[in-house]
């Protein structure tokens, strides 16, 4: 139940968003997170958006990983 899943924000109505994980849509409350916009990725946890996913930080990590795997193929 502590699972949190990255989900893309499709629509926002008041304090509720419709989000997508892959092609499946879910409802997500925005009562615990400020400044959410359509197109953002949020972490969905038990029906609530609990944090935004920072695309730049994710980019840094994946880039680092890609470099590593290029330098050192299996």
């Amino acid at each position: 139940m502590c699972l949190g899943v990255p989900a893309r924000v499709l629509r926002i109505e008041g304090s509720e968003a419709t989000v997508a994980i892959g092609s499946v849509e879910y409802k997500s409350s925005l009562l615990l997170l400020n400044n959410v916009e359509v197109g953002d990725y949020i972490l969905l946890h038990a029906g609530f958006a609990i944090e935004k996913i920072d695309p730049e930080e994710a980019e840094v990590t994946t880039r680092l990983f890609n470099e590593i795997s290029n330098i050192e193929p299996e």
Binding site: P6, I21, A58, F65, I68
Partner: peptide, 22 residues
């Protein structure tokens, strides 16, 4: 394109092997 963003890239098996070596 069907993949799940922010999930698939963190399941990369080459990276898992690399980290294991490290």
């Amino acid at each position: 394109p069907e993949g799940l963003r922010y999930i698939d890239e963190y399941r990369n098996s080459a990276l898992v092997v690399h980290l294991s070596h490290q």
